[in-house]
Amino acid sequence: MTDARSLVVKPWVKRYPVDGGPATLVFPHAGGAALAYRSLGTALAKAGSDAYVMQYPQRGDRLSHPAPASVGDLARDLFDAGDWAALGPVRLFGHCMGAVVAFEFARVAEREGVEIDALWVSASEAPSTVAAAPDLPMAQNEIIAEMVDLGGTDPRLLDDDDFVELLLMAVRADYSAFNRYACDADATIAADIHTLGGDRDHRVSEDMLRRWETHTTGAFTLSMFDGGHFFVNDHTAEVAELVNDV
């Protein structure tokens, strides 16, 4: 296993290294920046994972990078950001849209001979169900309403015009790619899939999480936590320990 300090990755990949620990790659939700997952990255490192949080284009230090045309293109872009094979078996963690991006990352990785140990799915619909769902909104007022409904964004920030402008850029880039996404029902990865959800999440139900089982030829588990769509923010240490223990 490669020493985390010697692994070459793109500078926009945020690292929380633990030398000798298993690698966990984190994929943010739609519109989410890597900085929003600093607490999870830190918790994963504390639990023993060598954590890497991905940064998508059109935000943070990738503000000038063009928006991906598709989720597949985004997954490939993130795969090309580092020599992940050097880390040994890799774990993936994705929240909401990030779980679908992580799934497509796993498909690329497995085709390229990179071993994916497990995919952790947090608050996400299954890939094969995305195309049948209503398109995500692109108008400003609808996006803001979506952010309020989902939670996870400090409402005070939505009164800041500069913040809203940057948020809209990131969200539209992700939503546009996600609205074009389609996945066959029989598309699978060899990696185990472990799903996590909030018992009060009004957007992603336990039944929706269970549909991920069809996308793995390995093991499948489901764990529910107290909370809503962003339950992870209230259970960061517990989630990190769970990811590191399995």
Results as ranks from 00 to 15, higher is better:
residue 158 L to H: 10
residue 33 A to G: 14
residue 191 A to Q: 12
residue 164 V to W: 14
residue 94 G to K: 09
residue 212 W to T: 14
residue 60 G to T: 07
residue 53 V to P: 01
residue 114 V to I: 03
residue 168 L to F: 15
residue 155 P to Y: 05
residue 121 V to K: 13
residue 43 A to N: 05
residue 83 D to N: 13
residue 224 M to P: 00
residue 106 A to K: 00
residue 2 T to D: 11
residue 27 F to R: 12
residue 98 G to Y: 00
residue 74 L to S: 08
residue 221 T to C: 01
residue 128 S to T: 07
residue 92 L to N: 12
residue 241 E to Y: 10
residue 7 L to W: 04
residue 2 T to F: 03
residue 213 E to V: 15
residue 99 A to K: 01
residue 19 D to C: 14
residue 162 D to W: 11
residue 100 V to C: 06
residue 74 L to A: 03
residue 166 L to K: 03
residue 223 S to K: 05
residue 165 E to L: 13
residue 140 Q to E: 11
residue 134 P to N: 04
residue 125 E to H: 11
residue 206 E to A: 11
residue 129 T to G: 10
residue 70 S to K: 02
residue 47 A to N: 15
residue 4 A to R: 09
residue 172 R to E: 05
residue 57 P to I: 10
residue 18 V to K: 05
residue 60 G to E: 12
residue 43 A to V: 06
residue 197 G to L: 05
residue 28 P to L: 03
residue 61 D to T: 09
residue 140 Q to D: 07
residue 53 V to R: 08
residue 145 A to V: 13
residue 213 E to Y: 08
residue 13 V to P: 02
residue 186 D to I: 06
residue 56 Y to L: 09
residue 7 L to M: 01
residue 103 F to E: 08
residue 184 D to A: 14
residue 91 R to G: 13
residue 15 R to T: 09
residue 183 C to N: 09
residue 21 G to P: 04
residue 135 D to R: 14
residue 150 L to H: 15
residue 66 P to S: 15
residue 103 F to M: 05
residue 230 F to E: 00
residue 123 A to E: 01
residue 128 S to F: 13
residue 180 R to D: 13
residue 176 S to T: 12
residue 120 W to C: 02
residue 167 L to P: 04
residue 111 R to K: 07
residue 42 T to N: 08
residue 227 G to H: 02
residue 190 A to T: 10
residue 86 A to F: 15
residue 124 S to F: 08
residue 154 D to Q: 15
residue 38 R to D: 09
residue 1 M to T: 09
residue 105 F to V: 04
residue 72 G to P: 07
residue 208 M to G: 12
residue 12 W to S: 06
residue 153 T to W: 06
residue 123 A to F: 02
residue 168 L to H: 13
residue 102 A to Q: 11
residue 115 E to T: 10
residue 42 T to M: 05
residue 56 Y to N: 06
residue 54 M to S: 07
residue 211 R to C: 04
residue 114 V to S: 00
residue 70 S to V: 01
residue 97 M to C: 10
residue 209 L to P: 12
residue 204 V to P: 12
residue 178 F to Q: 12
residue 15 R to G: 10
residue 14 K to T: 05
residue 21 G to A: 10
residue 82 G to I: 02
residue 179 N to A: 02
residue 180 R to M: 05
residue 84 W to M: 10
residue 110 E to T: 00
residue 17 P to L: 07
residue 121 V to Q: 14
residue 181 Y to K: 03
residue 163 F to A: 02
residue 231 F to K: 08
